[in-house]
Simulated scan of single mutants.
Amino acid sequence: MINFIHIILVILGIFGAIQCRTRYVILYLLWMLLWLSWNIFVCCLYLDLGGISKESDILSLRVSSHRSWWKENGPGCQSERLPSTGWQNQNQGNPELTTVLSCWLEYQYIEALHSIIQLFISLPAFVYACYAVSLFSNEENTFDTIGEFHSPSKSPHFFY
C-alpha cells in the first residue's frame, strides 16, 4: 500500500515540476521527508543500530510476528521444511516450521541494501524538488517596473 502511495506522489511531484505547480512539488517534498525517514529507520532496524532490533515486532505494530520474505527466499538460500503435524490446513505454510540452512547473503543485509538504494535514488530527487520550489517561489515574487506583481511565465526553464 505504501509503495502505491509512493508511486502516486512521485507522479504528482513530476507533474508539479513540469507544470510549475508549487503545491504539488511541496506535497512531494513532504512525502519525501517521510520516505527518507522510513528508509533510514529500516536500515537502522535491520542493521541493529540505534537501539532497535530486527528481532522486535515493531514493523507489524506488535500485532503479529514479522518475518522478512528474504529470510527464506534470498539469493542462494537453502531451506528445509519440517513436517507440520499440528496444522489443520496443509495448504497454509507455517513460517516457524521452515529452517534456513544457508544463504549467500543474509536477509538483513538485503533489506538494508534495498533501503540504501532507495535513499540514494531519493536524495537527488529531494534536492531537485527543493530547487524547483525555490525557483517557482522566486518567479511568483518578482515585480515589473510599474510595481505590480508579474505573473509567472509557467515555462519550465529549469530543465535547461
Rank of each mutant, 00 (worst) to 15 (best):
T22D: 11
Y24E: 14
I26M: 13
L27W: 00
L27T: 08
W35Y: 14
L36K: 11
L36I: 15
S37A: 14
S37V: 02
V42L: 11
C44I: 08
L47A: 06
L49F: 05
I52E: 03
K54I: 01
S56H: 04
I58Q: 10
L61Y: 14
R62C: 02
R62T: 06
R62S: 10
S65K: 15
S65D: 15
H66V: 09
R67A: 10
R67C: 08
R67V: 14
S68G: 14
W70V: 08
K71H: 13
N73Q: 10
G74H: 11
S79W: 09
S79A: 07
R81Y: 11
G86M: 06
W87A: 10
N89A: 09
Q90F: 02
Q92T: 09
N94I: 08
E96W: 02
T98H: 00
T99H: 03
T99D: 03
V100R: 05
C103E: 09
C103L: 06
L105N: 10
L113V: 05
H114F: 13
H114T: 15
S115A: 07
I116N: 01
I116V: 14
I117D: 12
I117Y: 15
Q118S: 11
Q118P: 09
Q118N: 15
L119F: 01
I121D: 03
S122Y: 00
P124A: 06
V127H: 01
Y128T: 14
C130W: 01
Y131E: 00
V133I: 15
S134P: 00
F136D: 04
N138D: 15
E139W: 04
E140W: 00
E140Q: 08
N141W: 01
F143R: 15
D144P: 01
S151P: 10
S151G: 02
S153E: 01
S153M: 02
S153R: 02
